[in-house]
Amino acid sequence: MSDDTNRVMPSVSERTMVPGTDLNSTQMLSVDPLRTQMGAVTTCPVCKTTVPAMEKYCSDCGYLLEAGEPPAPDLAVVAGNSAPAELFDPADGRTYPLRSGTTTIGRQGADIITTEGTVSRLHAKVTVDGGRVIIEDLGSSNGTRVEGARILPNTAVEVEDGANIRLGNWKLVLNLLVSNAVAEQTIDVAAAVGNQPEEDLHEGAEAEPLTATEPEPVAVLRWTEGPGVDVLIPAGTITLGRRPENTIVLTGDQYVSGRHASLSASVNRLILTDDGSRNGTLVNGDRLQEHQPVELFAGDTIKIGQTTYQLAFVTSNTSQQENVVPHE
């Protein structure tokens, strides 16, 4: 804790300007000169933040520095700490973690509590399941909106990364913390490996083990017409749009929305959802309803913005023979 370099004796007033840095009051009585060094720094053994040596607690994680190294520096705990998703309030910069499972939101007795008066006591609940986030309005007085559209009470609606959610007049943005989500999935998959039935892919398509281990595409949108180019689809939940935060950024086409659509892909199954794009998404000539997932099959023509593609699955040359499911 006492780093001998850079030692500067503080003036009396500097010393008294630092409130509550000393818990151990016996030391305070016989002012220990080593404890009042200014300028020296130390590194928090838990979160690796650089802290002035005179600080008692890490200024970031709050670790009691004088305790030295933690007995078992359980870095797995630190790494896996964050929730798979969060709600972000752009008005005050506050984030609300969404852990796996169900999180309730309201003014009283909920997991996420707000003082916003237009939010009901128990307003909505959000369920995080793998990479999927489902919101449900619990019969609130002022309703819940996803991307501006009011959702029906007591009806589950899937929301995508970056979605604007409004509870009463309270505006929030959903952020999927992808890296964590993937990490969690990888662990889940590792546990379940060996007995993974194909039916599982229906609900938890993104739990496909290829996500983490194999970056190869599972499908390709082959360009047939318009300003775009071929799009390779990796396994997992991916988003499509012009904005850079999308998994696949479609830059060439002006008619693509910032956040246009999302795909849930596994080796033999592909679910497409239009995320409320301005110019729509067409599958075999039919415009998709917003936020209504649709399964795609090999050979389908998909139009996103002004670009038309044809879907083909990529057949892996490894142990995936049984995956070639004949549709039609």
Partner: peptide, 19 residues
């Protein structure tokens, strides 16, 4: 106040400082 504490590596931590 109502606090939610994430997982922590074992040890003593200041979780909130009040001024």
């Amino acid at each position: 106040v109502d606090v939610e504490l994430d997982k922590h590596p074992a040890g003593t931590y200041r979780v909130v400082r009040a001024e």
